[in-house]
């Protein structure tokens, strides 16, 4: 408890000195709100037991946009991302307060079921995690459990379309019955993306999707993210600032559990308003 409060005061004095413009939300510099939001988060706090991991974050995720979340390790960006589809529910001691709405519906409302929420907010993880099943079954699993397919033909077409959208169809169309775990790392990650889009979600969350991949596979995934933006809203957590700059329209900078600055990606990387953001993107720490 003690060190968080000292961190807070330290941050405030730094923030006060570095602030160049008025704040739109408490503690955050830049445009937190967008005109056409898919998801809106207001005053979100996250606690792991006694320890607070996220402090009063408010942020909008715009429709058909890619928003990237950057920041040093342990800054809470992954924790925040996992709030958006309630993946934090799986951790017993995790507690979320505040309001997160998707298309006007509060996702932490007691009446809302997580199953349909996760069907509409898909997730891609840091480490490619295909099921130890065939490529076909990996993609077909989501549509099957949600009852999205009428018959085998329909399911086949969903699988084909998802793999095509993930840019994997040409590489695997002849070996759909082979295990998904036998693919290369980059292919596995695209398989996971295809698995996520097979249930036609509205939002896709990506938690450092390229951190386990080589540059060529990374380039393919980035290309894919750009194409997916047409149909999906994407929130991506990344350690690579170049990646954030390449794939996203908006960027949010997190520091020690606080959302420091949000803005258009170009603006964040060319003229950050907050001292901490500037220090981070110029490589002074992190």
């Amino acid at each position: 408890m003690n060190d968080t409060s000292t961190a807070k005061t330290g941050l405030q004095s730094e923030a006060g000195a570095a602030m160049k413009q008025n704040r739109t939300a408490e503690g955050t510099v830049g445009e937190v709100y967008v005109d056409d939001p898919r998801m809106t988060c207001r005053n979100v706090d996250v606690y792991y037991g006694e320890k607070q991991a996220i402090f009063d974050v408010s942020l909008d995720v715009g429709k058909n946009q890619v928003i990237s979340m950057i920041g040093p390790s342990g800054c809470g960006k992954s924790t925040f991302l996992r709030c958006l589809n309630r993946m934090n529910d799986t951790i017993d001691i995790c507690r979320v307060t505040g309001q997160i709405k998707m298309d006007g519906q509060d996702i932490y409302d007691g009446g809302l079921d997580v199953v349909p929420l996760r069907a509409s907010v898909g997730m891609v993880f840091q480490k490619p995690n295909p099921f130890p099943k065939s490529i076909y079954d990996n993609i077909a699993y989501g549509p099957r459990i949600h009852g999205l397919c009428d018959d085998k033909q329909h399911l086949d077409s969903i699988v084909e379309k998802s793999l095509q959208r993930a840019g994997l169809w040409e590489e695997v169309k002849d070996r759909l019955d082979q295990p998904g775990t036998g693919l290369s790392g980059g292919q596995q990650q695209r398989l996971c993306i295809a698995r996520a889009i097979a249930v036609s979600p509205e939002v896709i969350l990506m938690d450092e999707p390229c951190s386990a991949l080589d540059p060529i596979a990374t380039a393919k995934i980035e290309e894919l993210i750009d194409e997916l933006r047409e149909n999906f809203t994407i929130a991506i957590v990344t350690h690579s600032m170049q990646q954030a700059a390449r794939v996203s329209q908006r960027t949010a900078y997190f520091h020690l559990g606080k959302l420091i600055e949000v803005g258009e990606t170009d603006q964040i990387f060319t003229s950050p308003r907050h001292k901490l953001t500037e220090d981070y993107i110029t490589g002074r720490f992190g």
């Binding site: 993946m87 199953v115 349909p116 069907a119 997730m123 699993y141 459990i145 996520a196």
Partner: peptide
């Protein structure tokens, strides 16, 4: 996580 993530 993978299974929960697609809504199982």
């Amino acid at each position: 996580e993978a299974a929960l993530g697609i809504g199982a």
